[in-house]
Design a protein around this nucleic acid. Structure first.
Lengths: 212, 212
DNA sequence: GAACGACTTAAACAGATGTTTTATACAGTC
DNA sequence: GACTGTATAAAACATCTGTTTAAGTCGTTC
């Protein structure tokens, strides 16, 4: 039942995700990666992945696989109140995922770095998870507000919701400084969640008024 | 009345902000920068700025100076309704700034890159503009909701508001793909603004209920 | 016109980078 | 025990990096 011991290949990918996310793709050397993975030679990368760019792609695929296994199921057939509740749970889970789980934090940093790199693996990540997850978010939003889940306005609103969460990961250095925190731990995450769920409820409440 | 012709120094800084923002600090070479600036030698950078890191700092200072000249004044003595109106105007201006003005877009990209780089000029940017701007936002939020402008909850809420806006800049590649847009032009910015102002009003309205 | 200073260029340097090549260790198989 | 294929390591390669040094150009000043 216990998972197999991680191979060198796995160790290299894990180290690469961590370093690519922390330092950026170009700022990370293959020697750094293999050293962090415990090995002592840089040729491993080309042996296993063909090139540094191949390793980057392997990192993207590993993230996709990892996220697929951690997906909470989304129940489609829900009424408005259930959808609103699911939205809160989903956003709360995403916030925790982004700010608490160290492994996930590295993956999030990796993805954020890829967002604006034309040579990166954004296509892979988008088609493999981002689009589907966003579509689910739109579905819940549409159910909760009684509007078309795929309307342009709903899709924009879903991104706005995501943006609120993601900024506490992207802008964390600024956030912690302004708040006088030493980091974003469980206590701080709870405070953030309080504000974000209040915002979510307020937006949904605004729709209720015009809805029924 | 016309501004003086840009010096080589100015051209190098402008090119550096653009390239650092687009590619990242490490991924950009000084030869690229001087080539983009019209010059043909890389030694200019060390002549003017001492080092590549010195050029990075000069970019940060140039951004500070530029932003200072473009600041709309914030009127402090306002009632709740006026503060709410100012909030809408401010957020709308920030969204336009982030997605429409090409020069500002480069600066925004530069700042975002610096956010997570411990060796960067985040300190300079934070103390020179980020903290002050955020404090203004908190002030307006506090006035509009009748709460303490410097309470922890208000500061978090201000970051959440910012996050909604910034994500449409940070995650633009994802946003435009999911929305089927070819970019974020004036029309698209207007649609985004519609959603964000609706969210803002909803959040403020939620406070009104518990307030009076 | 000579001398100077500010600016720009070219060439060269040491170091780091991604990659390739070669060599070594070590399973399992006949 | 020799052979084979896989996995790791070491060294060498060409290229690119930031930086330095030296040379060149231009306008200004005396």
């Amino acid at each position: 039942m216990k998972p197999p011991a991680p191979t060198s290949k796995d160790l290299v990918i894990a180290a690469a995700i961590r370093l690519f996310g922390r330092l950026g793709y170009d700022a990370t050397s293959v020697r750094q990666i293999t050293a962090e993975a415990g090995g002592q030679n840089a040729a491993m990368v080309n042996y296993y992945f063909g090139s540094k760019a191949g390793l980057r792609r392997a990192c993207g695929e590993a993230i996709l696989a990892r996220v697929q296994t951690a997906l909470p199921p989304v129940v489609e057939d829900v009424d408005a109140a259930q959808a609103a509740r699911q939205l809160e749970i989903l956003l709360s889970a995403l916030l925790d995922f982004m700010t608490q789980v160290p492994e996930a934090e590295d993956m999030a940093a990796f993805i954020l770095r890829e967002l604006n790199d034309p040579d990166g693996v954004l296509d892979l990540l988008y088609q493999g998870m981002i689009e589907d997850r966003h579509r689910e978010l739109c579905l819940l939003w549409g159910r909760a507000t009684g509007t078309d889940p795929e309307s342009e306005r709903t899709r924009i609103a879903a991104f706005a919701m995501l943006g609120q969460i993601l900024y506490f990961r992207i802008g964390r250095p600024v956030v912690v400084r302004r708040l006088g925190w030493s980091g974003i731990g469980p206590d701080e995450a709870r405070k953030i969640r309080g504000v974000l769920t209040a915002n979510l409820r307020a937006s949904l409440a605004a729709h209720e008024g015009a809805d029924t």
